[in-house]
C-alpha cells in the first residue's frame, strides 16, 4: 500500500506540473532540436533584438511607454522580469496542487514560495537552455549566450551563471516526470527562514523526497548516483539564487530601472 501511495503522489505532482507550466522540457527540447515546423527567431545582436521586440515580445515592451527610450540592457532586464513573474504565478498554482500544501499555515505557504520560486525557476530554465542560448517568448525566440555575454555590465553577468548551472544540470538527463518531483521538493523545504510549522512541512518534504528517490530508481535504473547528485543540485541552486538576488539589488541601486512589485516582495529581506 505504501508503494501505491507513493506512485499516486508522483502521478499527482507530475499531472500538476504538466497542467500548470506553459513550457516544459519535452516541448523545449522539440524546439531546440529543430523538430518543429517553424524554428524560433534567433536574437543575436541589437538589430535582431529590435525585430523581436516589435513582434515576439511587443506586449511586454509595449506595456510601458517608459521603456521606449531605455537602452537594450534595461529592456532585456524588463522582459526577464515579465517571464519570471509569469513563472512565479505558474509555480504558485503548481504548489497549490501539491497534496498537503494548501493545508499549510498561509504564512508558511508565503515563506515556501518566497524562498523556493527562484530556485525552481532556475532549475526549470535549464530545460530551455543549450550551450549556445536560451528559448524566450514561450519558445518563439532564441537569444544567444554570446549576445547576452556581450551586454554591458552588470547585465552581462545575469545569465552566464545560469548557463553554467544548466549545462551541468542538463547532463543529468532528467525528464519532465523527474523535474516535477524535483520542483515540488524545492518548494516543500523545511529549512526556509521563518517557517512556523516546521514538522508539518518536514513530513511533506520527506514524502516528496522519498517519492523522488523511488521514481529515479525506476526511471533511471542505470544511474545509481542520480539521487545524491540531485540533492547536491539543491545546494547549488541556493547559491545561484543568493548571487542572483545580490545582482538584482546592485542593478536596482545603480541602474535607471524598476523592479516588478511581485519580485520586490520576494527579494525584500530574503537573504
Amino acid at each position: 500500500p505504501q508503494v501505491a501511495d507513493q506512485k499516486t503522489l508522483a502521478k499527482q505532482i507530475y499531472e500538476a506540473y504538466l497542467k500548470n507550466f506553459n513550457m516544459n522540457k519535452s516541448k523545449a527540447r522539440t524546439i531546440l532540436t529543430g523538430k518543429t515546423s517553424t524554428p524560433p527567431f534567433v536574437i543575436h545582436d541589437m538589430e535582431t533584438l529590435q525585430l523581436a521586440e516589435q513582434t515576439l515580445v511587443a506586449k511586454m515592451v509595449g506595456s510601458s511607454g517608459a521603456l521606449l527610450n531605455k537602452d537594450a540592457e534595461v529592456r532585456i532586464f524588463h522582459c526577464c522580469q515579465c517571464t519570471s513573474v509569469e513563472t512565479v504565478t505558474e509555480l504558485t498554482e503548481f504548489a497549490k496542487s501539491v497534496p498537503g500544501f494548501s493545508n499549510l499555515d498561509l504564512n508558511d505557504q508565503v515563506t515556501l514560495l518566497k524562498y523556493g520560486v527562484h530556485e525552481a525557476l532556475f532549475a526549470m530554465l535549464a530545460s530551455c537552455m543549450n550551450k549556445d542560448g536560451l528559448l524566450v517568448a514561450h519558445g518563439s525566440g532564441f537569444i544567444t549566450r554570446e549576445f547576452l555575454k556581450s551586454l554591458r555590465r552588470p547585465f552581462s553577468q545575469m545569465m552566464e551563471p545560469k548557463f553554467q548551472f544548466a549545462m551541468k544540470f542538463n547532463s543529468l538527463e532528467l525528464d519532465d516526470s523527474d523535474l516535477a518531483l524535483f520542483v515540488a521538493a524545492i518548494i516543500c523545504c523545511g529549512d526556509r527562514p521563518g517557517l512556523v510549522n516546521v514538522p508539518h512541512i518536514e513530513r511533506m518534504q520527506e514524502s516528496i523526497v522519498n517519492v523522488l528517490h523511488l521514481h529515479l530508481k525506476s526511471n533511471h535504473p542505470d544511474n545509481e548516483f542520480l539521487f545524491p547528485k540531485l540533492l547536491q543540485k539543491l545546494v547549488d541552486l541556493r547559491q545561484l539564487v543568493t548571487e542572483h538576488a545580490q545582482l538584482v539589488q546592485e542593478i536596482k541601486k545603480t541602474e535607471d530601472t524598476s523592479l516588478h512589485p511581485l519580485l520586490q516582495e520576494i527579494y525584500r529581506d530574503m537573504y
Binding site: 506586449k59 511586454m60 506595456s63 515579465c82 513573474v85 509569469e86 512565479v88 504565478t89 504558485t92 498554482e93 497549490k96 498561509l106 504564512n107 505557504q109 508565503v110 515563506t111 514560495l113 518566497k114 521563518g194 516588478h260 512589485p261 511581485l262 516582495e265 520576494i266 525584500r268 529581506d269
Partner: peptide, 21 residues
Amino acid sequence: LKEKHKILHRLLQNSSSPVDL
C-alpha cells in the same frame, strides 16, 4: 508576513486574479 507579501498572498488565495506585467 502576509502583509509584506500582498501579491503572493493574493495569488495563493485567488488564482483567477492575474498579475500585471
